[in-house]
Design a protein around this nucleic acid. Structure first.
Lengths: 230, 230
DNA sequence: TTGCAAATGTGAGAGATGCTCATGTTTGTT
DNA sequence: AACAAACATGAGCATCTCTCACATTTGCAA
């Protein structure tokens, strides 16, 4: 049920963080191998404690070869992050593709966040990488872009279901929902299991209210509710 | 309106991160001075780029004296973070103290998040410190504790207003609300101004629905809503 | 097959930074 | 005045990221 998220499962797309695009087969495999070794080391001791010399040693290559492809340590983290993000976006797009009503949107979100939660639980490396990204200004930008990308997917669907709402408001609400979804998942996996489950459920309930078609402010609760002071 | 949040304004409380508790007046002042200089450097270039040698130089002391009081670089960040957190908790407590109804709770939250947002806008150092904390496992724990502390303040008030709700559910919902409030603020100050304002407003609307006394699921929306699949 | 340029591989070491420790100085107390 | 405890110092150790001059391999054309 959880999508395969291992580095090997997500082949080279953009890889904007690479220093040189490997053209020969040997070096293309090498890049994959480096990423796999780095992932293992991050899982073992965390990306902060992971040393570039260790990555090279584990991959059976020299430190110089490592830097041939990755301009710095952050580039490894960035590449892994982009691959994880791509997987997440595919999940989101797949789940939203079926939606044709607010009720379905509600259901899709429940499923989506369950998958998301399971992915985070199964892949501690994802958490570590996110932490590492927060410390670096350039990498933080990537995290924002990811929330924006997910938000756009949601906003496109949502806008069709509530056509009379200003697109700008939908956009920022969708952006916020996706970003806080991320935050919730990371919070949930940071605490012990039963509490983490409760937290995910609480977030789902919170968001779902904004997709409910009936009731006051129906379908646009997050976007426009009367009686709220600005 | 924004509380004074400069290091000097929040005198020594616990300072659990200090290596040695300064007993003489000279060294107590020195610790304050170190923190002030560190704050200035973080504001100038970020905590990651801040060098321990720079802190010592700016404070006019030797590198050895610096390490006399702070066991490592993270301890400086931690001390500043604890002080900021203390200020935030005082704000929360002050705002919640007046609350005697769900409607007042709703208003208190609007005010609280406005203050919070202004604080983040006025103090870029707070953002930087939070980023630095995320990269370090021990410091991340402090961030969680902060959300828990704020959540407890909220839960105590909330539990009185909806007495028939299981305390456990209130706790995790309150924890989540405070934590996501933090996340929202940091998101809001990471984007350009008008969008940041919209994001804060959207979060307030989202949370407020759960404090609204009338309407379906009134007063406990986040905690228990019928028809939600688990 | 041979020759050659481009691609790839190598690792010693330069440069930078967090932090220690042996030693010197100041403070408060008797 | 004498002494212990607190405080201050900075050269230097340990560690880590990343570079660069040089060696090797690959793909391809003659």
């Amino acid at each position: 049920m959880i999508p395969d998220i291992s580095p090997a499962a997500v082949p080279t797309e953009d890889e904007t963080a690479l220093r040189r695009t490997p053209s020969q087969k040997r070096s293309r495999e090498r890049v994959e191998h480096i990423l796999a070794c780095a992932t293992a080391l991050i899982q073992e001791k965390g990306s902060d404690a992971m040393r570039m010399s260790e990555v090279a040693e584990k991959a059976g290559i020299s430190i110089g070869s490592l830097y041939q492809y990755f301009p710095d340590k952050a580039a490894i983290v960035q590449t892994l992050a982009e691959r994880y993000n791509a997987v997440c976006n595919e999940c989101i797009a797949a789940e939203l593709a079926k939606v044709t009503s607010l009720a379905e949107l509600r259901d899709a979100f429940c499923v989506l966040f369950d998958i998301y939660y399971d992915m985070f639980l199964a892949e501690p490396v994802m958490r570590d990488i996110w932490s590492a990204m927060q410390a670096d200004k350039a990498l933080r930008e990537i995290d924002l872009q990811q929330s924006r990308a997910g938000g756009k997917l949601l906003a496109d669907v949502w806008a069709r279901l509530v056509p009379d709402t200003p697109r700008e408001e939908i956009d920022s609400a969708a952006f916020l929902i996706m970003h806080l979804g991320d935050c919730t998942m990371r919070l949930a996996v940071s605490v012990d299991r039963p509490e983490g489950d409760q937290i995910v459920e609480a977030y789902k309930r919170m968001i779902i209210r904004d997709f409910v078609a009936d009731g006051p402010g129906g379908g646009a609760g997050l976007i426009d509710i009367s009686g709220v002071r600005s």
